[in-house]
Nucleic acid binder design. Sequence first.
DNA 1: CATAGATTTTGAAACGATTCATTCACGGGT
DNA 2: ACCCGTGAATGAATCGTTTCAAAATCTATG
Lengths: 334, 334
Amino acid sequence: MGVSVKEVAAHAGVSVGTVSNVLNRPEHVKPETVERVRDAIRLLGYVPNGAARQLREGRSRSLALVVLDSGNPFFTDVARGAEDRAADEGLSVFMANSDDSVEREERHLDVFEQQRVGGVLISPAGDDLSRLAQIRAHGIPVVLVDREAGESAFSSVSVDDVAGGALAARHLLDTGRRHLAFVGGPLRIRQVADRFQGASSAVSADPTATIRLFGADEMSLDEGRRVGEALVPLIKEGRVDGIVAANDLLAIGIQRALLFAADPVRMPEDVGLVGYDDIAFAASAVVPITSVRQPRELIGSTAVELVLEQADGAAEPRRVVYKPELVVRESTVR
Amino acid sequence: MGVSVKEVAAHAGVSVGTVSNVLNRPEHVKPETVERVRDAIRLLGYVPNGAARQLREGRSRSLALVVLDSGNPFFTDVARGAEDRAADEGLSVFMANSDDSVEREERHLDVFEQQRVGGVLISPAGDDLSRLAQIRAHGIPVVLVDREAGESAFSSVSVDDVAGGALAARHLLDTGRRHLAFVGGPLRIRQVADRFQGASSAVSADPTATIRLFGADEMSLDEGRRVGEALVPLIKEGRVDGIVAANDLLAIGIQRALLFAADPVRMPEDVGLVGYDDIAFAASAVVPITSVRQPRELIGSTAVELVLEQADGAAEPRRVVYKPELVVRESTVR
DNA sequence: CATAGATTTTGAAACGATTCATTCACGGGT
DNA sequence: ACCCGTGAATGAATCGTTTCAAAATCTATG
């Protein structure tokens, strides 16, 4: 069926060892021979068998990336960053989508573990990291993405959501707002809780300012619209003049509700709005929305970095935490 | 380093062959022995080495899915359909993103070919299918997704864009509109050209109706807004009363421009709007947008089906073409 | 021209699972 | 007591690569 080194070797009149050397250490082979072997490879259409190579080498030339939602641009960008960094190293990245399901995640991890991938970058679906500990115990480096390692001794790359929440709130205060609303939920999602905490602490630093939590059942457009409708009268009465949304979908929903109310709210005059994540839709909303941006590609490339660290030399696990950044648009200033 | 069948066999007091049988054909092994071997596996934390298995078996238990844009919900859903169907077969799916770049695609295909995946599902980036022909020549089934095979003898799964365009236009005509605008471009994208052609032919069947093409440089929100602004006066003058957008991003941009014009256009009263793809944002637009939906998960599962056909028994390549479906919302009827 | 040293090339062993022809064990029938 | 059949278990051969000690070849030098 397939063409193997053996055929190539025969065709080029050399030994299999030499073919392998041409493939992996051409500088140790006489240029003339390299030429001859390469010709044979081309002629026969030889493609090395990854399984055999991997079996011999013990570890594979690829990394696994398991994300919660492959449709989320956040993860798309993380993936891009990871792939680019991995390519520098001659590694490839297999991406898998757990879709927030623990079983799907489990299935993918099984495959990757059997495949003996060189490392796993994962944004875990549940709270149980024991499976990951197992994988690491089998010698495969694991790096948590967008989640701090906490007690567990994993390397991790994450973004400081407390700082992000503070950034958003402080910007609203700095632009003259005094009574903020934080929209987000459910609070059991750590990211949401952290962002709220950050916003709260920024507000409490200013005795003239207040903040109030408006719970959301999910982080969606429609939920944003629902909450937005409830906010309209409060804004009209001057009891809310700034809104921090826990993500951009909520923010967009909120904006729609405000702008399309029977008696529309003006933005940024009557109220300032800050979203979170800086998705593409935030920039092209009716009134472009100020948003907190996470260094997405950087997260991906750093994650690969940490996997590599763990791989060669069992370095100490490291936890990298990036600071988010504010992208100011017309929803808060003109 | 790793635990292999050998250790498991030793620990359970059986031969390696028996361990393998427990893994693959437990019904041929005495229940008592199965038990003993399973205990040993659990105790030692044995994980089969996929590379070794694959080397011996010749082909891998996984499929590759290469998409143009992993952020596009279309492909996310295709992937889900493919994964589910593959899981039924005990196969896993590795997803890779070519990001519309021929080199990225090339890199991924190299890896997959070396990995000897069981099949490749791909939405190719360029027009050159020779690399894919090569892969197939090496015994790996290839199925084109969202692109017809044309001359080439590949299996393919696609959706009839001509029918989709016709569906959109006819719906506008059926709801009383007479003068349509088709917004989309560039026309070298086959999908766009087909949709336009379908819309045109539907219109030409009705002598009282007209259709006019409004070119777009890209299929984005902002471009939609730009074209939308140009459409406002035409609608006001009654020279356009129905719009077919080549995708939902354009449609959303157009809607924004119309609703936020100095003298806003009413929808659906003054104009009807139909988008294409039925992305989530279409349903939650300010005025929810009627859209043409493609059977996305079905496309994925069918693609896997076709790969399997090609794999066992070298069946004739098949081309499956699905009909799209119209999802009616408030942008065309109240 | 002999030889040490450097450069190339060789080919067998190893990686870990599956396969399959062969051997083993155990009853039942005569 | 013997033979046969059936179900269970064995283990050597195999897949395609990489590695590395050893062999072969070449180069420079005395």
